[in-house]
Nucleic acid binder design. Structure first.
Lengths: 205, 205
DNA sequence: ACCTGAACACCGTTCAAGT
DNA sequence: ACCTGAACACCGTTCAAGT
């Protein structure tokens, strides 16, 4: 910091933070054009480096995509955790968790595709599965709490979380695929969560 | 048929049925390597034609992918219709519909990705949406019947079908993404359908 | 340590030309 | 009507060489 280093922290790219710059630019392109529209050579051009430069930071194209997926899961998990820890009664928080998921999914559709695309490199695949589990665990934790309060049927919370996750993930897929027609997404979400929470509820004797 | 035509119906490709041959080969490659692994040039090589030949039958690569998606939806809809029309009580048929969907989805994961990938050409996109609706309509029809028998809560059957569809589609996504861990798919499916059907059930006053 | 330039083997797409 | 061959503009990946 005290010495005259070549501006590692900012500066017009070229140097130092190429890895971060690649990820940042890739994220924009992904959101705009999807994973298919993501080219390492185009990224390099955008950043003013040679087309071979990215290979210093990502072994291959898939490694970059995997890094994007990891970053996506990390952000998603933050949002889910925030929703799970929000103040209020447990069922409202479960619904909030579901809404947070649907919102994130439709706002970052190509990213979500990537996160679940199931064709990752062997290394990242383990990390991604781990991060996916974190989402499920957040849900399972809230479900266990609801069970403790007698609000949700008994049973393995992890398995019930899989069901809850399926519902909101599938709904997001329908929405992105334009299969919801004139149904406003918020209404479809509310209905799905009502059916889900009713189905999860402890059978009143 | 009576005249000496150049063996349109079979024959070692080369002639006549290139379009059908491309689709058939593409389907195999899709199942084995996913959409990313599908190259028009490789397809042409496999069939022993020049790399420019496919363009006579498919305007571009996306047109071929769209055709695959259309064929996939058509087959899926057949299976769903069969499940919906199976003998037996309505709730059992609804569960059968759900199981049929999950089975098809995990057996043809890359195809399903394509069907819902939402980046189709303008023309096919309408046809694909139409076919997607057919799946939903089949479900909605069965739900309406269940309502008539007093087994399912009141409400727009089309919207309830969206919820049902979301559940099974999302579950298939979890399964394909290896997020179900040691939970056998059949058990996860049964639990999801139990939660769903309980949530859909008419509240017993 | 990080980046460049050239090279290689692939792509999709187009278009004149063949049969 | 259907296919070929050449051409063009892109890719990802590798590797010697530069700084």
């Amino acid at each position: 910091m005290r010495r005259g280093e070549p501006a590692l922290t900012e500066g017009p790219y070229h140097h130092g933070n190429l890895r971060a710059a690649l990820l940042e630019r890739a994220e924009t392109v992904l959101a705009e054009s999807g994973a298919d529209g993501l080219s390492l050579r185009a990224l390099a051009r955008d950043l003013g480096v040679s087309h071979a430069a990215p290979s210093r930071h990502f072994r291959d194209r898939q490694a970059l995509l995997d890094a994007l997926a990891v970053s996506g899961f990390t952000r998603l998990n933050e949002r889910l955790r925030a929703a799970a820890e929000a103040p209020g009664p447990v069922p409202a928080r479960l619904a909030g968790l579901g809404r947070a998921y649907v919102e994130f999914a439709v706002a970052h559709a190509p990213l979500l595709d990537l996160m679940f695309s199931a064709k990752h490199a062997e290394d990242s695949s383990a990390e991604l599965r781990e991060l996916g589990h974190r989402s499920l665990d957040t849900t399972a934790g809230l479900i266990a709490r609801a069970q403790a309060e007698g609000l949700v049927r008994p049973g393995d919370p992890a398995r019930l979380a899989q069901v809850a996750f399926s519902t909101v993930h599938g709904l997001a897929t329908l929405a992105v695929g334009s299969l919801l027609d004139d149904t406003p997404l918020a209404e479809a979400t509310d209905l799905a969560l009502d059916v889900l929470l009713t189905g999860l509820a402890r059978p009143h004797r």
